[in-house]
Design a protein around this nucleic acid. Structure first.
Length: 911
RNA sequence: GCCCAGAUGGCGGAAUUGGUAGACGCAGCAGACUCAAAAUCUGCCGUUCGCAAGGAUGUGCAGGUUCGAUUCCUGUUCUGGGCACCA
C-alpha cells in the first residue's frame, strides 16, 4: 500500500466534517484551554505562505493540548472591514461586501486544505451586522463612560453629571453647571468621555479630495497620482486610551509576553516624570506651558521652542515676524511627521519675535517655533537647554543662540552632555547641588512658587477612532445642534447603508456623506465617518466564546468559563497597535463588570514574518522606458514592484510584463546582455508588493501534512525568514519513511506486529517522547520535527514495526501531521479518531544512562573523548583522565594548574 | 532619526542554564540496487595544512570578561519589523 496523501486527506477532511469533530462545547468536565491566532484581513490575493506559519503552530498546540486532556477553544474568523477592499471598490466599482464575501470564501477553502482544527460554527466576521452591532454597543458604553482618576477605573458618565450637579468641578460650580446650555454641558462632558470628538490633524489631499492613510502617502505626495498632501485639522473621534496608560503599563508585569514586546509597549506608552511650568511672554497676557523631564536644568534654559501647530503661535508673533513665520508654517504643513522625525540633520525653525521670561531668574529668552517639537507630545512646547540636550544644542548652534553652561567642565562646548551627575553652576538656588538631587529641589520650588507642578507624562496619545471612509462600522451617533446624541441600544445595529460609488463626500468627509437621505434624519444628521479597523479586532476574542448570542456581546458565563486567551499567536507588527487597543478594551469591559479579567492574553507568542523576495523594475522618469538593474545608475528612475510570478530568478519576462497592466503595454526596455535584470529586496509578503506565494500548489503537490511540517521545519517560529520551498522534499521523504514502518510498498503488505518491544526500541521511543513533548511545550516546532526524523530514522534502523511503539509515535505526530496519523491509526485497527487518544507518557527509566562520553579539553581545546561512569568519584576520575595517553602527550613537561570537571558535561585540564 | 529584533557551512537551521560548534534537513560528491530511470539504501561533505595520524583556524566586524564565549559585556556594520489613518 502506497502513501497516497491526496486520497487520505480528501477522505479524512470529509469524514471529520461530517462527524463535526472540531465542534467545541462551552460545558465540559475537562479543563479549558484557549488558543487564538490573530485573525486575518481577507485580502484579495488570498492566503499566502506567510499566513499559515502562525496558524500551523497554533493548530499543533491546540491538538497537542486536546491530546493532553483539555477542552480546547481554537476559533478562526475574519477582520473584514478595512481600506484595501474599499480601495479595490474605488478602482473596480465592485462593492466591498461582495469582494469581502468572495475573499473570505477563498481564505476558508485554503485554510481547510491545510487541515486546521477550527470550529467554524464559531466563525466571526467583523463586517457582519450581527458582529458590529456589538462593536457599536461597546462604542456606546465607552461614550457613556469617563475615567475616574481617584478609583482608577472607568465609570458611567452619569456619575460625573451627578457630581457636577451637586458639587461642580475645579473650573465651575454646581450653579454654573445648571446655568450652562445643553451645548455647553455636552462640550464639557465630551472632555471626559472615553470616546470623544475633537479636532485632529489628518493627511489631506486636495486633488483627490480625500483623507489619506499614512500608508497612502509616499514622500509627501499621494501614492495614487502623486498629488501634494497637506495636514488639515478635521473633527475626529478619539479613543481616550491615555486614561488607561498607567494600567496598561502595570499590566505588563502580569502577562507572559516576550521582554522585547513589553519593551516596545513600554516605550510606546512612554511614561516620564517631570514638571509642567508656565513662562510669561513679554507683552502678552497668555503664558506658555512647557513640560520638562529635567527641571534641574531650569537655569540653563536659553530659549523656548513651540511646535509649529501650537495654539499660541499666531498670538505671540508680532507683525514684523508674521511673514517669515507664515512661510515656515507653510513649509511644515508639507512635511509628514515621519520626515520631521527622521531629518534631524536638517535643522529648521523660525524666531517668533517674542521673548519669554524664565520664572526662576527673570531672564529674557527668545521664543522659537521648530518642527522638531511635536504638537502631540507633552504640552507642545519645550524649554531648550543646549548644554544638556543634543537637539537643543544643534538648534542653538545653527541659529547662533548663546549657550549658558550650568554644568562646568561636564560641558565641552562641542556637544551637549545629558548627564545627571554634574554639580550645578550658574543655577541660583540650585548651585552646588548634584543634578540628580537638584531635581526634587527644583520641583519643590516650582510648586511652592506657583509657577508649575510635578507631572507624569505619557508619550502615548489618544488614538484616532474615526476614518473618512465607507467600509467600516458606522457610528451610532446623530449630531443635533452641535451635540453628539447616541442612538438607543435597542436600535443597533446601525447597518452600513449600501452605496453605489465610493468617492469621498464634500469637505473631505467619507463616502457616507453623499447619502443625504441616510445622513439627514428627523432628529439631526448622522455621523458620516466610520470606525477604524482596530475597532472590531479589539474585542473579537470575546465573541468567539459566545458567537451567536443575540442578546449580549458575550455572556458572563461564557467569558467566565473560557476566561483569558491562554496562548495568543501573531506577528510583532501588531506590538503597539492592536495589542494595546485590545488590552484597553478588556480593561474597560472589566471595569464595567462585563467580564471577569482585565488582561485579554495570558501568553503571547510572536511568530516571525515569512518574507517575500520582491522584484523591482526601474522606470526612467517621465518615460515609459524601463532600465535594467545594472544600468539604472545612469538614469533618474522610479523603482516599481513587479509581480514575482513574471520574473524568472532575476530575469524579467518582458512580454508578460507588457500584458500585466494597460499602462505598461507600450513599455520599452533598456537591457543588459540582452536581458532585463530586476532588482530584489526581502520584505514583508504582501499583495501590494506583488511578492506573494500561494500555498495551494504546494499542498496539492506534497499534501497538507508535508506542508505543515515543512513550514515548522523552516526555523524557529518567532524568527522572520524569506520564503523558500527548496527543502520541502526532505520533509516529504520523512513522511514516506514513516509510512514504510507500517507498510511494505513493494510487497504490498502491512508490517506491524503485536510483539513486545525491546530495550533499545523503548529507549528510542521514550527519548523521542521527552524531546518532542518538551519542544512542543516551548513552541520549538522546528526541533520537534527534527526529533521526529531522528526517531523514525532510529526505528527504521532497528527495523522496529511493533504496534505498541508505532501507536505512540502516531499520537505524538497527530498534532503535526493529522491526516497521515489518523489514517495509520485506523489502519492499525482503532475505531475512534486519534484526536481522542491520549498523549504518551515518558518512562524515566529509559532516559537514564550509566556512562557519558566526556569531551576532554586541554586549556579549553578539545583533545580527546573518554567514556566515564556518571557516578564516578571526582578524585578517581581525575587520576584516570590524567593517565590518558592523549592527555599525557599534551601534559608532557608541563605542570597542571587546574582540573575542571563539570559532571555530565565536560572536563578541562588547565596547564 | 527613535524603539524592537536578527546575523552560525553552498542553503534552512541545531547547540534549552557559559561547557564537544555545525544536530536534523536541502543541495552536492562517490557507491549499491536496476537493462535504464525513478524510488530506496550506504558513505563523504566548514576552511586550511597533511598520504595519514594529527594540527591550525572558524559563529557579521573590533575589543573585553572567563579555565572555557555562538551564548555575557562595550563599541560597530548590515538586514528585517514598528513609528500612531495598512491590518
Amino acid at each position: 500500500m502506497e502513501y497516497s496523501f491526496g486520497r487520505i486527506e480528501e477522505h479524512w477532511k470529509e469524514k471529520w466534517k461530517k462527524e463535526n469533530i472540531y465542534r467545541i462545547n462551552n460545558n465540559s468536565d475537562k479543563p479549558k484551554y484557549y488558543v487564538l491566532d490573530m485573525f486575518p484581513y481577507p485580502s484579495g490575493a488570498g492566503l499566502h505562505v506567510g499566513h499559515p506559519l502562525g496558524y500551523i503552530a497554533s493548530d499543533i498546540f491546540s491538538r497537542y493540548k486536546r491530546l493532553k486532556g483539555f477542552n480546547v477553544l481554537h476559533p478562526m474568523g475574519f477582520d473584514s472591514f478595512g481600506l484595501p477592499a474599499e480601495q479595490y471598490a474605488l478602482e473596480t466599482g465592485q462593492h466591498p461586501a461582495e469582494t469581502t464575501r468572495k475573499n473570505i470564501a477563498t481564505f476558508k477553502s485554503q485554510l481547510d486544505k491545510i487541515g486546521f482544527c477550527y470550529d467554524w460554527e464559531r466563525e466571526v466576521q467583523t463586517s457582519s451586522p450581527g458582529y458590529y452591532k456589538w462593536t457599536q454597543w461597546i462604542f456606546l458604553q465607552l461614550f457613556n463612560s469617563y475615567y475616574c482618576s481617584i478609583e482608577q477605573k472607568a465609570k458611567p458618565i452619569r456619575f460625573l453629571v451627578e457630581k457636577f450637579e451637586k458639587d461642580g468641578s475645579d473650573d465651575f460650580s454646581a450653579t454654573d453647571w445648571k446655568s450652562f446650555s445643553a451645548r455647553q454641558q455636552a462640550d464639557i462632558l465630551m472632555q471626559f468621555r472615553l470616546v470623544y470628538s475633537a479636532f485632529g490633524v489628518v493627511n489631506w489631499c486636495p486633488a483627490l479630495g480625500t483623507v489619506l492613510a499614512n500608508d497612502e502617502v509616499v514622500n509627501g505626495v499621494s501614492a495614487r497620482g502623486g498629488h501634494p498632501v497637506i495636514k488639515k485639522k478635521m473633527r475626529q473621534w478619539f479613543l481616550r486610551i491615555t486614561a488607561f496608560a498607567e494600567r496598561l503599563l502595570q499590566g505588563l508585569d502580569h502577562v507572559d509576553f516576550s521582554d522585547s514586546m513589553k519593551e516596545m509597549q513600554r516605550n510606546w506608552i512612554g511614561r516620564s516624570e517631570g514638571a509642567e511650568m508656565e513662562f510669561e511672554v513679554e507683552g502678552i497676557s497668555k503664558k506658555i506651558l512647557v513640560y520638562t523631564t529635567r527641571p534641574d536644568t531650569i537655569f540653563g534654559v536659553d530659549f523656548l521652542v513651540l511646535a509649529p501647530e501650537h495654539e499660541l503661535v499666531a498670538e505671540i508673533t508680532p507683525v514684523a515676524q508674521r511673514q517669515s513665520i507664515n512661510e515656515y508654517l507653510t513649509y511644515v504643513k508639507s512635511r509628514s511627521d515621519r520626515d520631521r522625525m527622521a531629518d534631524v540633520k536638517q535643522i529648521t525653525g523660525c524666531f517668533t519675535g517674542s521673548y519669554a521670561i524664565n520664572p526662576l531668574n527673570g531672564r529674557k529668552i527668545p521664543v522659537w517655533i521648530a518642527e522638531y517639537v511635536l504638537a502631540g507630545y507633552g504640552t507642545g512646547a519645550i524649554m531648550a537647554v543646549p548644554c544638556g540636550d543634543q537637539r537643543d544644542f544643534n538648534f542653538a548652534q545653527h541659529f547662533n543662540i548663546p549657550i549658558t553652561n550650568i554644568i562646568g567642565s561636564y560641558f565641552n562646548g562641542r556637544e551637549a552632555n545629558p548627564t545627571k551627575d554634574a554639580v550645578l553652576e550658574n543655577s541660583g538656588f540650585l548651585n552646588g547641588l548634584l543634578m540628580k538631587d537638584a531635581m526634587e529641589v527644583a520641583i519643590g520650588k516650582i510648586e511652592s512658587s506657583g509657577i508649575g507642578k510635578r507631572k507624569v507624562n505619557y508619550r502615548m496619545r489618544d488614538a484616532g477612532f474615526s476614518r473618512q471612509r465607507y467600509w467600516g462600522e458606522p457610528f451610532p451617533i446623530i449630531w443635533k445642534d452641535g451635540i453628539a446624541v447616541p442612538l438607543e441600544e435597542t436600535s443597533l445595529p446601525l447597518e452600513l447603508p449600501h452605496v453605489g460609488q465610493y468617492s469621498p463626500g464634500p469637505e473631505g468627509e467619507g463616502p457616507l456623506a453623499n447619502l443625504t437621505e441616510w445622513i439627514n434624519t428627523a432628529n439631526g444628521s448622522r455621523e458620516s465617518s466610520t470606525m477604524p479597523g482596530y475597532a472590531g479586532s479589539s474585542w473579537y476574542f470575546l465573541r468567539f466564546m459566545d458567537p451567536h448570542n443575540p442578546g449580549e456581546f458575550c455572556s458572563r458565563s461564557a467569558s467566565d468559563y473560557w476566561n483569558q486567551v491562554d496562548v495568543y499567536i501573531g506577528g510583532t507588527e501588531h506590538a503597539v497597535g492592536h495589542l494595546l487597543y485590545s488590552r484597553m478594551w478588556t480593561k474597560f469591559l472589566f471595569d464595567q463588570g462585563l467580564i471577569g479579567f482585565d488582561e485579554p492574553f495570558k501568553r503571547l507568542i510572536n511568530q516571525g514574518m515569512i518574507q517575500g523576495s520582491s522584484r523591482f523594475v526601474y522606470r526612467v522618469d517621465g518615460t515609459n522606458q524601463f532600465v535594467s538593474y545594472g544600468l539604472k545608475e545612469n538614469y533618474t528612475v522610479d523603482k516599481l514592484h513587479v509581480d514575482v510570478n513574471m520574473v524568472d530568478g532575476f530575469i524579467l519576462e518582458t512580454e508578460a510584463f507588457k500584458k500585466w497592466r494597460p499602462d505598461f503595454a507600450n513599455a520599452e526596455f533598456i537591457l543588459e546582455d540582452g536581458k532585463y535584470i530586476c532588482g530584489s529586496e526581502t520584505e514583508k509578503m504582501s499583495k501590494s508588493k506583488f511578492n506573494t506565494v500561494n500555498p495551494d500548489i504546494l499542498v496539492e503537490k506534497y499534501g497538507a501534512d508535508t506542508f505543515r511540517m515543512y513550514e515548522m521545519f523552516l526555523g524557529p517560529i518567532e524568527q522572520s525568514k524569506p520564503w523558500d520551498a527548496k527543502g520541502i522534499d526532505g520533509v516529504h521523504r520523512f513522511l514516506r519513511k514513516l509510512w514504510r514502518l507500517f507498510f511494505d510498498e513493494q510487497k504490498n503488505m502491512k508490517l506491524w506486529t503485536e510483539e513486545q518491544p525491546n530495550e533499545a526500541e523503548l529507549k528510542c521511543l521514550h527519548r523521542g517522547i521527552k524531546k518532542i513533548e518538551d519542544d512542543t511545550e516551548r513552541f520549538s516546532f522546528n526541533t520537534a520535527v527534527s526529533a521526529f526524523m531522528i526517531l523514525v530514522n532510529e526505528l527504521s534502523d532497528l527495523k522496529c514495526h511493533k504496534k505498541s511503539i508505532l501507536e505512540k509515535v502516531l499520537v505524538m505526530l497527530a498534532p503535526y501531521a493529522p491526516f497521515i496519523s489518523e489514517e495509520l491509526w485506523h489502519q492499525m485497527g482503532n475505531e475512534t479518531s486519534i484526536l481522542n487518544a491520549s498523549y504518551p507518557e515518558t518512562d524515566k527509566k529509559y532516559l537514564v544512562d550509566a556512562t557519558k562520553e566526556y569531551p576532554v579539553s586541554i586549556n579549553g581545546k578539545l583533545r580527546t573523548n573518554m567514556l566515564l561512569p556518571l557516578d564516578a568519584d571526582p578524585a578517581m576520575l581525575e587520576k584516570e583522565v590524567l593517565a590518558n595517553e592523549v592527555v599525557q602527550k599534551w601534559l608532557e613537561g608541563k605542570t597542571m594548574k587546574k582540573f575542571i570537571y563539570v559532571k555530565g558535561k565536560m572536563i578541562n585540564v588547565v596547564i
